[in-house]
């Protein structure tokens, strides 16, 4: 057997199995008591008797600008979405900028303008911030960190342990657009009709589902590793599994062409503005109806069900056969967000 790694590899950040092992072995083992336990997208903390949601995320996407957004809009949406899928109403953001010597002002201004526009659209305020500059070569253009604080929306009781056979799996829109847009921009295949990032907030979708909160069991925004990662994590070690139907999975044509060209499975590719929800069958139709009334929910649909195949995510192909939907392993797509 080969030696274990003695240092961090890029694959440790890919959102796959290696990332999960790193976080389990090095982070959770040290900090995993209290609010960090179970690694929620946002922690539930309580200050002077008031419950709040608290989250943080760093953004290192390359290139800084891509079809459908830039690192600034992404830094707002990513953090807003972590709060939203934890059943929260996003309120305040912090903004940490690390700028590389030589970054054109033009680019910086476009990124900052995108932050303002995104924050306004999400109804969140940037409450505090920090700016550092490092020498050329010590970061790549710019890195951003945002932390977010939100109010819990009453009624949501979320957790993968609540999944039951027969539950519906819903997706709020097309899958894999963000990852493909960034990759295509990186590969220089910026074609007409090519993939466009779905970078957007999902908090309105969450608000819309609040009327059915009691029937909602699980919410996530499928970022790194795509829906394959999120769903596998949801059923890992559980008595239930998930069956997806290939025939109904929503994909944008440009995204699908690019994925076929690059030989990627879109189930493994990141979204940055989609909501993946698992709910009781009784509320599924109602949630889909309210989503369809929102512009960001036009293509929402049911993509599969929870079944009793413990721990496995299976895809029923259009051929009528079935195959495993696996967690991507390591360095699938580095620096996608």
């Amino acid at each position: 057997m080969r030696q274990r790694e003695t240092s961090i590899q890029l694959a440790h950040g890919g959102g796959g199995v290696m990332s999960r092992n790193l976080i389990r072995d090095e982070i959770v083992s040290r900090f995993g008591r209290g609010p960090l336990e179970g690694l929620p997208d946002a922690a539930r903390i309580s200050i002077a008797g008031r419950e709040l949601l608290f989250t943080t995320d760093s953004y290192v996407v390359t290139p800084l600008e891509f079809p459908g957004g830039n690192i600034g809009s992404l830094a707002v949406h990513g953090t807003v979405n972590d709060l939203a899928v934890s059943g929260g109403r996003p309120r305040w953001l912090s903004l940490g900028l690390i700028l590389e010597e030589g970054l054109p002002f033009e680019v910086l201004r476009r990124v900052l303008d995108a932050i303002v526009a995104a924050a306004t659209a999400c109804d969140v305020r940037v409450a505090t911030g920090d700016t550092k500059v490092v020498a050329r070569g010590q970061c790549d253009g710019m890195f951003i960190n945002t932390s977010g604080i939100g109010d819990p929306i009453p009624g949501f009781r979320l957790g993968p342990e609540r999944l039951r056979p027969g539950d519906w799996v819903l997706a709020s829109g097309t899958l894999g657009d963000h990852g493909m847009a960034v990759l295509a921009a990186r590969a220089g295949i910026g074609i007409m009709g090519g993939p466009v990032s779905d970078s957007a907030p999902v908090h309105r979708l969450v608000e819309a589902a609040a009327a059915f909160a009691g029937g909602v069991r699980f919410m996530r925004d499928p970022t790194r590793g795509g829906i394959a990662s999120v769903l596998n994590e949801a059923v890992e070690g559980q008595a239930v599994g998930i069956l997806l139907r290939e025939a109904v999975l929503p994909f944008a044509p440009g995204t699908r062409s690019a994925a076929e060209m690059l030989g990627l499975d879109l189930l493994n590719v990141a979204c940055e503005g989609r909501l993946l929800m698992i709910c009781e069958p009784g509320v599924g139709e109602g949630i889909l109806e309210t989503w369809h009334r929102l512009p960001e929910g036009q293509r929402a649909c049911r993509i599969g069900e929870v079944d009793d195949r413990g721990g496995a995510v299976i895809l029923e192909t259009v051929m009528g056969s079935r195959r495993l939907v696996d967690v991507p392993q390591g360095e699938v797509l580095p620096r996608i967000c």
Partner: peptide, 16 residues
């Protein structure tokens, strides 16, 4: 990067 040679991989070599 991750194909094992006799001793290690290029990935490990890069991390080093």
């Amino acid at each position: 990067l991750h194909v094992p040679g006799s001793e290690g991989t290029l990935g490990e070599c890069r991390s080093g």
